[in-house]
Design a protein around this nucleic acid. Structure first.
Length: 853
RNA sequence: GCCGAAGUGGUGGAAUGGUAGACACGUCGGUCUCAAAAACCGAUGCCCUCCGGGCGUGCCGGUUCGAGUCCGGCCUUCGGUACCA
């Protein structure tokens, strides 16, 4: 055995062996229980970052652990390969998105392989290949047939100068990131998926996902935002038009004194009287220049404009002036709100600003509200007043009664409204899945016939960043024949949101080469659902909601048989680091800021906040350097040991040394004893002395702890700490040489427990300990309950809540005996002197708490 | 703004309502060495009148024999907020 631990040599040797033998390749096997472990696939940005290292190290521990437990483990990897950065690179550096992406994938694949991750690389997929997206196009056609995909108008961020659509992240302070022009909201005809048709089911199933973090489920429930309420029709005075509103507070209908519409409301123009037109149009223009987040925040000034028209309150007959208001959104409800200033804070502020009337209709218990003296709206419960026949009812009863009343009048009905909106999937970009639609002037919008799929993304395009999508300018792509009449027609040039690809890739992993449909039913039936999904907490709502939606659609299309794709979910925290910048040269990479001075101008660097590692702020650590210097095992061990997975991880180089030192120590410990150990026999518990029994107790306590920490809690940091304690215990065990069999059990346990975390060194040491076959053949070590038994326990004694003594009692002592021993302790007695004992609480095996005064 | 988290020594973190600080990093002292590195041993929350005791888990209050943990109210930081993925 080599004296010195040499990770570079060991790791490349094992990685080659794993690759050559395809040891992580899996096939369906009805004899074995399956376990599908999936980490969120990466966007191929060019280099892996510490967040990937963390995510994939966590996943690999679980994959290897489950394999050791005898599961048939599917552990795939692939590439979320469409997206904006490829297009930005094309605009900035002239590289083609496809070439850029393929090169990035090649680089990152090498990096991942250097980490020793146990993937079945035969299942690798990239979403930018026609073999993948052709099936996405097919599913879209099926959704179209079922009415689950449709087209409607929606607003986008538009830069008038670049003549292009901007992503939210490309808008800075309402200005275009490239040219600084003011961004406006522009209406475009766009494709949507009808996710709202699944709102009830997506919500209901949040109750059936016990393996998900409650915080994620709560966020999803709030995002879906189901609310029970009432749709009410308001007639417009002197016109045929009707305004429909949604309200959760029909009980306040008698207090509705005006109407607020979204500035984008389709009736806005029709209701505007000629003399108001100028002011109204100016207001609409102004609101379009404000982003939605700002518009709806509570501290944003409530503003509006009178249209000149009035509508009629269906129960009071009162004329209600119709306003356009900045805080009303077209996307929520019906885009119109009946304004009850006395019982809604936003309406209250609005009414005060524009001197609109207030009418109290709910009186809280023990108070009498007067419009003249109110300083805010009363949004709580109360008794109905000024509400005709409904006076005297409590408002909850009133909600139902007024709803019934409106239904009888034919002026309203009870409805359920969702905050969730349909999913806008059109992107006016090049690097994405082409939407398979053809537009014919004679026949309209038609699906591309199935046999013509895939609609392949052409590669002969040029990138300027201006003038809209490069696809739309490519004649050879746009010009086509109408599939119905054969006349000249145009192709759809929008591509899909990249969230579409990531909404079903986990299904495709079950059968990545299947050529007759999106998925092979038998393979999906065997592998799905994913048993454990692991990824960043930043995906808690959007990706994870879309990825729950698509399988449900595919189920209803008869393609899969599952309701939910992910049985268990682990959301990992982000890897963060302080930013460093130079007043002269901007953000600095860590190596440019060595010694806290800028490497270029020697100015003192400014140390910024701790933030998510990102290329743009240069607060990144390149895992390659780490692996080259310490080896993959150390890099894995450190990221796992530094913090529990859910927590954010602040990068700190110094900790890495510690992890490396530990592996060197384990190597030496085995090296010093492997000859003795290899010739040792099996442990005979009957002949052991106390020292050996104590050693065995620690061995088996550690097995139990590590098993529980990996399996139930994903607390890898404490699992590793426990193994470190065991190693410390073995090193300091004075009777090592008297008990070769126990020493062998101890060392073998360390190596086996380390296997999932640091597979290369563990496999190597396992062979050194004289085993001809691999770790996996021996499975996961079992905890011997008999070895755990201890003869005595330490009991802490508290007097009035403070620790005053510690006593050792036999493990089987009863409460009375424990109590007596505790009270007899010298220090305890000292603190009880002159006091009367009122109460003694005995917690078996733990503590005695004495209350005295 | 809204939704969801987090806050514990110099640092990362540990603690089924039961000894706060496991395990590491760092620092200090020591052993070995001509010297250094590596390795090993020891100390290390703060304070005091230091063989003992007091105070300590973001802040304020509450429940309990006992609260880092449970409850109420704040503060700060982070994530998401529908075209970043």
């Amino acid at each position: 055995m080599q004296e010195r631990y040499n990770p570079a040599e060991i790791e490349s040797r094992w990685q080659e062996q794993w690759e050559k033998d395809k040891v992580f390749r899996v096939v369906e096997d009805a004899e074995k229980p399956k376990y599908y472990l999936l980490e969120m696939f990466p966007y191929p940005s060019g280099r892996i970052h510490m967040g990937h290292v963390r995510n994939y190290s966590i996943g690999d521990v679980v994959a290897r652990f489950k394999r050791l437990q005898g599961y048939n483990v599917l552990h795939p990897m692939g590439w979320d390969a469409f997206g904006m950065p490829a297009e930005n690179a094309a605009i900035q550096h002239g590289t083609h998105p496809a070439a850029w992406t393929i090169e990035n994938i090649a680089n990152m694949r090498v990096q991942l392989k250097k980490m020793g991750l146990s993937y079945d690389w035969d299942r690798e997929l990239a979403t930018c290949t026609p073999d993948y997206y052709r099936w996405e196009q097919l599913i879209f056609l099926r959704m179209l047939e079922k009415g689950l995909a449709y087209k409607k108008s929606a607003a986008v961020n538009w830069c008038p100068s670049c003549e292009t659509v901007l992503a939210n992240e490309q808008v800075e302070d309402n200005c275009c990131w490239r040219c600084d022009s003011t961004v406006i909201q522009k209406e475009l005809d766009q494709w949507f998926f009808r996710i709202t048709a699944y709102a009830e089911e997506l919500l209901a199933f949040t109750e059936r996902l016990p393996g998900w973090p409650e915080s994620v489920l709560t966020m999803q429930r709030n995002w879906i935002g189901r609310s029970q309420g009432c749709e009410i029709e308001f007639a417009v005075a002197d016109q045929e038009q009707k305004i429909r509103v949604f309200t959760t507070r029909p009980d306040t209908l008698f207090g509705a004194t005006f109407m607020s519409l979204a500035p984008e409301h389709p009736l806005a123009a029709a209701l505007t009287t000629p003399e108001r037109r100028g002011e109204v149009e100016a207001f609409i223009r102004r609101i379009q220049a404000v982003d939605r987040l700002q518009r709806t925040s509570d501290d944003f000034e409530k503003e509006g404009v009178f249209t000149g028209s009035c509508c009629i309150n269906p129960v009071t007959g009162r004329q209600m002036p119709v306003y356009l208001a900045n805080f009303v959104l077209m996307e929520y409800g019906t885009g119109a709100v009946m304004a009850v200033p006395t019982h809604d804070q936003r309406d209250f502020e609005f009414a005060r600003k524009y001197a609109l009337p207030l009418q109290v209709v709910i009186q809280p218990e023990g108070e009498t509200l007067e419009p003249a003296t109110m300083t805010g709206a009363w949004e709580g419960p109360g008794i109905m007043v000024n509400s005709g026949v409904f006076d005297g009812l409590d408002n909850e009863t009133g909600k139902a009664r007024i709803a019934e009343h409106l239904e009888q009048l034919g002026r309203g009905r009870r409805t359920v409204n969702f905050r969730l909106r349909d999913w806008l999937v059109s992107r006016q970009r090049y690097w994405g899945t082409p939407i398979p639609i053809i537009y014919c002037d004679a026949c309209g919008a038609l699906p591309v016939p199935e046999e013509q799929l895939p609609v392949v993304l052409p590669t002969d395009v040029s990138f300027t960043g201006e003038g809209g999508s490069p696809l739309a300018r490519l004649e050879s792509f746009v010009k086509t024949a109408c599939p119905r009449c054969g006349g000249p027609a145009r192709r759809e040039t929008d591509t899909f949101d990249t969230f579409v690809e990531s909404s079903w890739y986990f299904l495709r992993y079950a059968c990545p080469d299947y050529g007759h449909g999106p998925v092979e039913r038998a393979a999906v039936d065997y592998w799905m659902p994913v048993d454990q999904y692991i990824g960043g907490v930043e995906h808690a709502v959007m990706h994870l909601l879309y990825a729950r939606f698509w399988p449900k659609v595919m189920r209803d299309l008869g393609m899969v048989g599952i309701d939910e794709p992910f049985t268990n979910l682990l959301t990992q925290g982000m890897v963060c680091m302080e930013t460093r910048s130079c007043p002269e040269h901007g953000w600095l990479y860590p190596e440019e800021a060595a010694g806290e001075r800028c490497s270029r101008c020697d100015a003192p660097v400014v140390v910024g906040r701790n933030e998510k590692m990102s290329k743009s702020k240069k607060n990144v650590i390149d895992p390659d350097g780490l692996i080259a210097r310490y080896g993959a095992d150390t890099a894995r061990l450190f990221t796992l040991f530094a913090a529990p997975p859910e927590k954010g991880l602040e990068w700190n180089d110094q900790g890495v040394e510690g992890s490396s030192r530990f592996l060197h120590r384990v190597w030496r410990l085995v090296g010093e004893h492997f000859e003795v150990v290899c010739s040792a026999g099996a442990v005979d518990p009957a002949v052991l002395d106390e020292s050996a029994r104590n050693m065995r107790r620690q061995i088996h306590r550690t097995i139990r702890k590590v098993t529980d920490d990996i399996d139930g809690r994903f607390q890898f940091n404490t699992a590793i700490a426990a193994i470190m304690e065991l190693v410390n215990g073995i090193s300091g065990w004075p009777d090592k040489n008297r008990h070769p069999a126990v020493l062998r059990e101890a060392l073998e346990t360390v190596v086996r427990l380390l296997g999932p975390f640091v597979p290369h060194i563990a496999e190597e040491l396992w062979r050194e300990l004289g085993h001809g076959d691999g770790l996996e053949a021996h499975g996961w070590p079992a905890c011997d309950e008999a070895a755990l038994a201890a003869s005595s326990v330490l009991i802490v004694v508290q007097v009035n809540g403070k620790v005053r003594g510690k006593v050792t009692v036999p493990a089987d002592a009863d409460d009375q005996a424990v109590r007596e021993t505790a009270l007899a302790d010298a220090n305890v007695a000292r603190f009880l002197e002159g006091l009367t004992v009122r109460k003694v609480v005995v917690v078996p095996g733990r503590l005695v708490s004495v209350v005295a005064e």
